[in-house]
Design a protein around this nucleic acid. Sequence first.
DNA 1: ACGACCATTTGATCAGGATCAAGGAACTTG
DNA 2: CAAGTTCCTTGATCCTGATCAAATGGTCGT
Lengths: 227, 227
Amino acid sequence: MPSVCQDCRVRHEGICAVLSPSELRHLARNARHTHHDAGEGLALESGEINGYANVTNGAVKLSRVLRDGRQQLVGLQFAPDLMGRLFRAESPLSAEAASDVELCRFPRGVLEALVASSSNLKQRLLDQSLHDLDEAREWMVTLGRKSAAEKVASLLLLVAKRSGGGSDDSITFDMPIGRADMADFLGLTIETVSRQVSKLRHSGVIAISGHRHVKVLSLRALKDRAG
Amino acid sequence: MPSVCQDCRVRHEGICAVLSPSELRHLARNARHTHHDAGEGLALESGEINGYANVTNGAVKLSRVLRDGRQQLVGLQFAPDLMGRLFRAESPLSAEAASDVELCRFPRGVLEALVASSSNLKQRLLDQSLHDLDEAREWMVTLGRKSAAEKVASLLLLVAKRSGGGSDDSITFDMPIGRADMADFLGLTIETVSRQVSKLRHSGVIAISGHRHVKVLSLRALKDRAG
DNA sequence: ACGACCATTTGATCAGGATCAAGGAACTTG
DNA sequence: CAAGTTCCTTGATCCTGATCAAATGGTCGT
């Protein structure tokens, strides 16, 4: 196994899981691990870098900004997701580290060559993009038809699912994004998000410490409020 | 070439375009052309039918409904799109004929076997799902961050692009969906959609006859208003 | 052509969330 | 440890789009 992959957290997940030893070696030879502080722009799509990357740690936010500055987050990527729009050099999306992030980057051509030769990899990417499509459509319902209260509950639920840890009706996790990004994800303002979070706190559905650390006290109640 | 495909409008587009003659024959042997009136439910996802279909004519709307009846359209499919969620028997989406629709249906297993054996087909499906994902994310911006006026202009533009016909700064097309579906697509009410359409008409950006037939008088003005 | 029905348009009022404006709590920096 | 900065919370008011209500127009069947 390539030495860079030796202690990689996502070695057996994501796209690396479906590569043969020789394919993995080839990819590893061209890969480079990088660290990025929270808030840093990740110029994968446009500009010089022009490649792909596995998220190996942390969370990345994908967003689209309108000419006048209005912003909408269109996705959150966690390990072991692959970042970058396949087969397209330019994408209107911008990516930014939501928390501190570790990436495993590789050049465009290397991955695309692997995709062309590996049916497993192609299948894996098809699965991910179908899954992302399901999530995006689910989110369209949230954006288009839910009230502010339901939107906030839906987002907490979304992150809770990803973060995993917790018992049956109670989960604890850290929000990878602040109130401003939550607002941009939900199509709301900061103030409205804050008010709705407070409402959930006051009604005992969640408990919060340090703005980011969330404990869901009743998962059932939260689901009810998510619409 | 299989006789059913002989005069098929989408023979050289969509997934059929990438199949070898023998693969196409195999698919055609198991395919069945069906007609559906506007408004008819297309139970591809749930229930008995349980298969896939190529849209060969007309437009299909994909929607998601919340328990309390609120509805959000999450996509419009035109020829030669493939309908049906790959590799998943159940999907929370429902499909309905927006206009009169012609489908070319085939059983789940037949297509999935072809996908497993044809790298070209897998590539084609990957391309479509990446494209659908781009569209869904684009729409998230519209739903989350645009005003009612911008939403309606965006939808007209979306359909105009698909429908193609027209000169440089002026396009004519038929809306495949009525005001109610437009509202469900945009996360608005019928009344708001109607008011915004009227506003566009009164300011000379579009002309309308028979509610459905739209002539864009100034594409530039429409784009400006789409945000 | 006539009337019934349906979709759309238009009008009046209401409310949810945006905007404007202060405060408060937690993390930097000296 | 204090001061500054940043992020979050809370309050007051406003406005966009929802809701309620009615009118108009187009289509279809007879």
